[in-house]
């Protein structure tokens, strides 16, 4: 499947000073910040600041990762192995406890592809109400581009037990996750399709040799506007500045922070990136990610579609 690459027309790399302009600057950390915390022993497995890598490619972590980081895989760890759904409270508590993470731990997530899988992991952690979860701005690519240390050593953690273990929290989907019926009820309100232009127009329907991954119908949800996710990213994988993001989502798209917005893509991973941008960088309060996305809508019966 083709995908737009992050645009290269952008301004300077986001600095910490640049982060301050975002609605919730505490949701991003810089590579400098993380490197300093790691050097001081204040971040890494078993400390109050856990670092997780979440990638599209499940083996990327094994080829070398940020020292002290543990892996969290979207398919193996976050998705239920049978149902098309996320893990439940008990499974999630186990994932966190195994990684030495408690309810009060600060979790910094980074990954490949301008952090879309990292944003997806952050969004899933938000379903469980984990309070302090952040992204490493620029993700894996920026860390490597800056020539920073990578290791193949997998840190060992002693999982917390008893009261210190991660509590079993019931997942709360209502606020930030939309289901098909919710999207149907939402028609007429802002819908953001973050896929590539070819997928939006319906031109890309068949993926050669992947009939099972295709959808029976091409196009987009009726009324959805096309804003490919990568428009929010700089070439180095960092997020664009607040002013640049406002130019796209507020001025060009006419969205406003009070709007109820639903974002979607193919399975909800790229739209997690956009969900992060709207919610944490621009301060929208009512954004939901429709993780069923096109693989559900484009296959379901009698869903309103536009081409």
């Amino acid at each position: 499947m083709t995908d737009a690459q992050p645009s290269t027309d952008s301004a300077e790399t986001t600095s910490e000073a640049g982060h301050a302009a975002y609605a919730h600057p505490e949701r991003l950390v810089t590579t400098d910040w993380l490197a300093a915390k790691l050097a001081d022993g204040e971040a890494g497995a078993g400390t109050p600041i856990a670092v997780l890598e979440s990638d599209e490619d499940v083996l990327l972590y094994e080829t070398g990762h940020i020292p002290g980081a543990l892996k969290l895989d979207w398919q193996q760890d976050l998705n239920d192995p049978i149902d098309r759904d996320y893990v439940d409270g008990e499974q999630f508590a186990q994932l966190m406890t195994e990684r030495g993470i408690g309810r009060d731990t600060t979790v910094v997530i980074y990954g490949d592809k301008s952090n879309w899988w990292a944003a997806y992991a952050l969004w899933v952690m938000t379903l469980f109400g984990h309070d302090d979860v952040r992204l490493l701005d620029g993700g894996r690519a920026k860390w490597i581009a800056e020539g920073r240390e990578l290791t193949r050593d997998v840190p060992t953690v002693s999982p917390a037990t008893g009261d210190a273990a991660y509590p079993v929290i019931e997942r709360d989907d209502a606020a930030i996750r939309a289901f098909k019926e919710d999207v149907r009820a939402h028609l007429g309100k802002p819908l953001v399709d973050v896929r590539s232009p070819g997928e939006y127009s319906g031109e890309l329907l068949h993926m050669p040799d992947y009939p099972q991954e295709g959808s029976l119908r091409g196009g987009h949800i009726r009324g959805a506007k096309s804003v490919p996710w990568a428009r929010a990213a700089n070439a180095d994988g960092t997020f664009k500045s607040r002013a640049e993001l406002e130019a796209i989502y507020l001025e060009e798209q006419g969205l406003s922070p009070e709007d109820e917005v639903v974002a979607y893509c193919r399975i909800g991973e790229r739209s997690s990136h956009t969900w992060f941008v709207l919610t944490h960088l621009l301060g929208f309060e009512k954004v939901r990610n429709y993780d069923g996305s096109w693989t559900e809508w484009g296959n379901a019966v009698r869903m309103p579609i536009e081409r």
Binding site: V58, L59, Q75, Q76, D209
Partner: peptide, 17 residues
């Protein structure tokens, strides 16, 4: 079981090509 069934499709596609 170690990398998820979905990811195996890539290898099936390669062999098919």
């Amino acid at each position: 079981e170690v990398i998820s069934p979905l990811r195996m499709r890539g290898m099936v596609a390669m062999l098919s090509r």
